[in-house]
Computed example of a mutant assay.
Amino acid sequence: MSKTRDIPALIIWLILCFATAYIGAMATRDAPVFYAQLSLASWAPPASVFGPVWTVLYTMMAIAAWMVWQRRNAPGADVAIGVFVLQLVVNALWSWVFFAWHRGALAFVNIVVLWLLIVATILLFKRIRPSAALMLVPYLAWVSFATALAYSAWQRNPGLL
């Protein structure tokens, strides 16, 4: 494949990942107010941390998907890309469940499913392009932290979540 065809594909993956971010962000318009009302664990980061972290993670996710897409004719690449897209959907849904709909239990289930899909994506990407799988490890680490944070918030805020 020529390098000139690689750049538009990367741009498409960036657009897809940041469209996911945008869809999730639409649910968080009132998040600063809601987040401030929550009783959070002492280890919970300030709300201002989430935007920069997610920006880096979505960029890395797009690059990882693009790297696998470049080898889309490899055995299992279609499944790997499909699972990646599915986890994007579950990722965007979480913000709606937690921030817009205030459903703590469902948000926790959602984030556990997301975590499992990220693990599956990493394992599938590893078979096709190990460096792409490694690019998703920070995402898995952040979602692992977010899972603990979501569980803690749900348990500490039964009236709000």
Rank of each mutant, 00 (worst) to 15 (best):
W43K: 04
S42E: 15
V68I: 00
S39N: 15
A31G: 15
A25L: 03
T59G: 15
V33Y: 08
P45S: 09
W43A: 01
R29P: 06
D30L: 06
V56H: 06
G24E: 08
W43V: 06
W66Y: 08
S48N: 11
P32D: 10
T55K: 07
T55C: 09
R29G: 15
A25R: 07
M60H: 05
G51M: 07
S42N: 14
M60F: 10
W43T: 00
V53T: 07
D30G: 14
F34E: 10
T59C: 08
R29K: 15
A62S: 00
M61W: 08
V49T: 15
Y58H: 14
A44G: 11
P45G: 08
A65P: 02
A62H: 02
P46V: 00
W43D: 05
M26D: 14
M67P: 00
V68T: 07
L57S: 11
Q37Y: 04
V33N: 09
A25F: 03
W66N: 05
F50Q: 04
G51Y: 01
V56I: 13
L38H: 05
P52K: 01
Y35D: 12
A44M: 14
V53G: 13
V68Y: 02
R29Y: 12
L57D: 12
F50W: 02
A31C: 10
A64P: 03
M67G: 07
A47C: 03
W43S: 07
V49R: 09
M26Y: 04
S39I: 06
A27F: 14
V56E: 00
T55R: 08
A25E: 11
S48D: 07
G24W: 03
M61H: 02
A65M: 11
M60G: 15
A44R: 07
S48I: 09
P52C: 03
T55W: 04
W43P: 13
P32T: 10
